[in-house]
Nucleic acid binder design. Structure first.
Lengths: 335, 335
DNA sequence: CTGAAAGCGCTTACAG
DNA sequence: CTGAAAGCGCTTACAG
């Protein structure tokens, strides 16, 4: 069928050991021989069989990207943008990226020694167990949000400060009644956002009793609309909201608009993360920027280091965020 | 290190051959023995080594999802939604999905026998060569757009009819000067869209001299804005445009809005494909719906069939589209 | 510098 | 029904 190492050994008149050595750049082959072997490889188009190599080296050349609850998640550009970064991060290497969305696949992928390492997207407490993950002994890097008790290195945006900046931006515009639209607290990301919100409000001397916090657990436009409706009715004074993600902000704007309110005139809205599409929306979304592609890249290079057995210094890499004022924010209505 | 087939054979007091047979569900093992083996496997948590299996069976358990020009593309929800479908399609199987965005990775993935089959996203003529792809002899299914001379089965939306429906919807609203905002013609998708546009216009007795067609080759908001600007200036009569994708439509709306025009009052805009976010936008996007998740699922199941050596009947599976009227369309201004 | 040989963990004729 | 053995294509001590 396809050519094997034996074929190139024959064609070059050497042993397969020598071929293997030049393939992996190991020393111990004369330059003349090595050159001849390289030529033959090129000529007959030999490609090493990864299964065979993997069998003896106990590696696969694959890294897993594990994304929780696929269906809802992939539409969220936060994930796809980080994914882009990961892809770029491994582009120059020999690793392939295998993605899994369902926990069924994830378990299999990990148990089955099908990958050399794992990039874990913002895991939630109710999903893959940390104990289990630890017991596997696979190199793991977490991306997106920090897990308190986790032994794994992590790359993430500084959500807490991001939300703080968002709150302050609204404050500077004159807003005093500021709400938070958050995701479910089973995600550490949401917990950080809540902390950031509470801290910022307290620093500013504003009321942060959690009445002004709306928690949305499923990302369904109808549910968001309904929730926003009752939320705004119960908190009539709110003039601006900060959201824990751009995607959420888009839904909030939609919900608000269908209530015959106008953004930003009746309500200012700020997102979080600045996904590429945010500048593209109409009105363009005020949000807090972070280099999502950079986060993905960094997570990838970090994982590769761990796989290579290198000690990594920073176990928790936090990317700075920066508020970007666009069109969904304005001074409050009766200002 | 981890347990091997030998360990379970020892523990069960049988040969590795028997273990292998129950693993693959092959006949030739007594029910009592088989049951005992299954128990041992469960107890000691044995998982077969995929590399070893792959080496002898010459399979990998991986299917490749090949996405062209990653950076721009992944932000486009058209792709991520189909991806979701593919993931669902292989969820119940033992296959893993390995994704590649760069042609470098793609070549390696395919040459290196690292996958059992390939799902190829809307390839362009200037990318991976069909000749090369054919020469590899790997099962391939194309998703997204049809390649005329391609020997590979394809799953795709009926773009041509979709555009036709969009044009007709605008016509029915009273529009007569209808433009097309298209992608680059190196993609068959764009070619189909252009055909659909020309045919629909002709059927309606409208002018379809290509002056009313804007071709945007790179998806950059500044470029879109600039292009739209000159386009609308040169075609002042246009009251509605049809776009070859929802993503493009979002950019068009943005561009138009920054020109101090209002959608749909000054310009009606229709997208194509109805990605999940379209209903989420403000104003929500009028577009032509197609079951993108279904397309992904179908492509996956089709590829699995080809891998299994089954003959597939339909080489070109076309999904119907259906116009959805939302908020970016209205009667023309001076109607 | 070079090669013969063992071995990675499986599957699958082949023999019994 | 069951097992001994060959072999998949590599890598890597070990000897020379």
């Amino acid at each position: 069928m396809s050519v094997s190492i034996k074929d190139v050994a024959n064609a070059a008149g050497v042993s397969i050991a020598s071929v293997s050595r030049v393939l992996s750049g190991k020393p111990g082959v004369g330059e003349a021989t090595a050159e001849r072997i390289r030529q033959v490889i090129e000529e007959i188009g030999y490609k090493p069989n990864l299964s065979a190599r993997g069998l003896v080296k106990r590696t696969t050349g694959n890294i897993a990207v594990v994304i929780p609850r696929g269906s809802f998640i992939l539409n969220n550009p936060f994930f796809s943008t980080i994914l882009e970064g990961i892809a770029k991060g491994i582009d120059q290497t020999d690793y392939n990226m295998v993605i899994s969305f369902t926990s069924l696949q994830q378990k299999r992928l990990i148990e089955t020694q099908a990958v050399d390492g794992v990039i874990l997207f913002s895991p939630r407490h109710d999903e893959l167990s940390l104990e289990w993950l630890k017991s596997i002994g696979l190199p793991i890097v977490v991306v997106g949000s920090y897990l308190e008790e986790s032994p794994f290195p992590c790359v993430r945006p500084d959500d807490e400060d991001g939300i703080r900046q968002a709150v302050n931006a609204l404050y500077d515009l004159g807003h005093r009644d500021i709400g938070l639209v958050n995701g479910p607290l089973s995600s550490m990301h949401s917990v950080k956002c809540l902390n950031g919100y509470n801290n910022a409000m307290t620093e500013l001397g504003l009321d942060c009793s959690n009445k002004n916090v709306l928690e949305i657990d499923e990302f369904d436009i109808l549910k968001v609309k309904k929730a926003m409706n009752t939320f705004l009715n119960n908190h009539g004074k709110i003039t601006g909201v900060v959201c824990s993600s751009d995607y959420l902000a888009i839904g909030v704007i939609k919900a608000v608009t269908t209530m015959e309110l106008t953004v930003p005139r009746d309500l200012s809205v700020v997102g979080l993360d600045d996904v590429p599409m945010s500048d593209f929306l109409t009105p363009s979304l005020s949000t807090v920027h972070v280099d999502l592609v950079g986060i993905g890249k960094r997570a990838a290079s970090m994982l590769l280091s761990v796989i290579d057995g290198k000690q990594i210094r920073k176990k928790d890499v936090v990317f700075n965020m920066k508020y970007v004022n666009r069109e969904t924010t304005d001074v409050p209505k009766n200002h």
